[in-house]
Design a protein around this nucleic acid. Structure first.
Lengths: 337, 337
DNA sequence: TTGAAAGCGCTAACAC
DNA sequence: GTGTTAGCGCTTTCAA
């Protein structure tokens, strides 16, 4: 068995309380601290964090609950959260829910049992609606998606604006029949759809938005079918990286290319969006910043639980690339003006 | 404060021991179990896992230590590890080391303090060499990279074979001046380099392998320079996804394309490798299987610590795509035979 | 500044 | 089957 605090105390000839203080930040004479550290090192002492947590009643642990860590958006966020957490001396428990409300409930329950200090959560729309964040023993910071306003801290993109920017850009490039693909499990999908509709309406146009399961496979299927329809749109936007990938694959399978046959744009500046063809126009999200900010908000709330509920809304950045170059019919002398 | 086991006991009119047994898998009469469950539900009781761990002396926790979760290889592995862990009722603590031996040491120390059941670890070459896995209070399973044979369980790719396959493929396609990019911090880089050299030597050829920092940026810089040299290779292989990405970017920046100016191939079947141009030829690693297998090995060792040390070597799969189509000089009637 | 002692919430040994 | 009790390893009063 490994050395306990008692063993260190015995070896250093002091009480366990002194050891605890010396290894922590208690008031101990320099000489004793030295002796204790020496003894601890000698014995290879490692404090037992379970015991420390039980006694001290704080776990220095945060839960991070996302749909799938393999989504590059969440990958980046999680890296930021972990960097910030470890810097603050906290651990992170990562949970993948696969957009499944049952799993979400299960992990929230687990977080209670872990007595986590707080949770950073990207909930499905259903759970966000139902969730009473103050029903838990810990604060919750929502990321990417949010529930009813003012219920919990949140870090989100300005989704309506970003979607509108994308639409405005396509309109400026001469596209008029714009279709949209939106995830059907998150508030983000709805908000981006709202921005999409609003921007088109502002120009007296209507677009066709389709809500689908947030997977590349679903998008590929839907877009493949869409492309075969009579009234094919001349531009398509996809409300996240997975949907954009599916859309791109559908185009490739159909032997079509952007922007020649169809303009394509979307959300999330994933590696491949800059590599394929002349690049895909996307809204870049400040992914690392989202994670870091979420952790900062959590820490400041732990520091002062009386803080009022805050929403941090971050702006996306439009990266214009080749996939949305001007519509053929708008290209100067060779086409209609 | 939340309800404790004592409160549940009082509410159900039984002893705390009975509550513990009823909620766990102890022998309790059906009637009492019912009453206890009812009371626990009523009170919203959540067992305190810190207390349970301290008392029971097992934490049901595994550590996963990788260089960077943003590397898609580790992303996929981590998802597999977590799936398997949560299924087995265990939690995962994720640690990013950035290939930094100091961070590796720090996290290993943290794992000791957490009294984890075991660790799944992808160490730098330096740490792998130094590491004495039995110096810790928990078993270690190495993934992707391994240390001295027989020291710890490991799940690795057959790196030499995979690199050789890549070389053989390029040779068969008519390429003769093959360069290689290898990471300089991992055993994986060395092994792939060895396979590369061996395969070339078997054909009486010599390649030029360069060892560099395992980042896309380093690869881009090195390849940009390499392409400007007098003796430009006619094919390049990159020993992981990051290096392959950097190499591709260097080509694009130089206005070159594969396979026209230079064949390009590498490791890791990342999303973008299938999308760019006519696709990049890669060795696909069974990423999810690697993670799942590592977790299985860990669980079986926890079950029976007497098991002898095992290495599981998995085969990669060569995915031939457009970036390595036949060398111009080997293309039938139009070129040299 | 240091030590003695209580106790965090739970499980497991033992007794009935 | 059920209850009583000790104690996991630590931090934190409280007293000296």
């Amino acid at each position: 068995m490994s050395a306990k605090i008692k063993d260190v105390a015995a070896a250093a000839g002091v009480s366990v309380a002194t050891v605890s203080r010396a290894l922590g930040s208690g008031p101990v004479s320099a000489a004793l601290r030295q002796r204790v550290e020496e003894a601890a090192k000698q014995l290879g002492y490692r404090p037992n964090l379970s015991a420390r947590r039980l006694r001290s009643q704080h776990t220095q642990t945060v839960g991070l609950i996302v749909s799938d860590i393999r989504n590059p958006f969440f990958t980046a966020v999680s890296r930021a959260v972990e960097d910030a957490a470890y810097q603050a001396g906290m651990r992170v428990i990562l949970c993948n829910t696969d957009e499944n409300p049952d799993k979400e409930a299960m992990y929230l329950r687990l977080m209670e049992e872990e007595r986590v200090s707080g949770v950073i959560f990207s909930p499905t729309r259903d759970t966000a609606r139902r969730l009473r964040p103050d029903a838990y023993g810990f604060p919750v910071v929502m990321i990417d998606r949010s529930g009813p306003a003012g219920q919990a801290d949140a870090v989100v993109l300005d989704n309506r604006l970003a979607a509108a920017q994308l639409v405005e850009h396509l309109l400026a490039q001469g596209y008029r029949h714009i279709g949209g693909l939106f995830g059907n499990t998150s508030s983000t999908g709805s908000e981006r759809h709202a921005g999409f509709e609003a921007a088109l309406a502002a120009h007296g146009l209507a677009g066709e938005g389709r809500f689908i399961a947030p997977t590349a496979e679903a998008a590929e299927t839907v877009v493949t079918q869409w492309l075969a329809e009579e009234q094919r749109p001349d531009a398509l936007i996809a409300s996240n990286g997975l949907l954009l990938l599916g859309a791109l694959r559908a185009l490739q399978r159909a032997g079509l290319s952007s922007p020649h046959d169809l303009a394509l744009a979307g959300f999330d500046n994933e590696v491949w969006t800059g590599l394929v063809g002349n690049g895909l126009t996307v809204i870049e999200q400040p992914v690392y910043e989202i994670g870091r900010t979420a952790m900062e908000m959590l820490l400041s709330r732990l520091d002062d639980p009386g803080l009022s509920i805050r929403s941090v809304v971050l702006a996306g950045r439009l990266l214009v690339r080749g996939s949305t170059s001007p519509h053929p019919s708008a290209q100067g002398v060779f086409g209609q003006p």
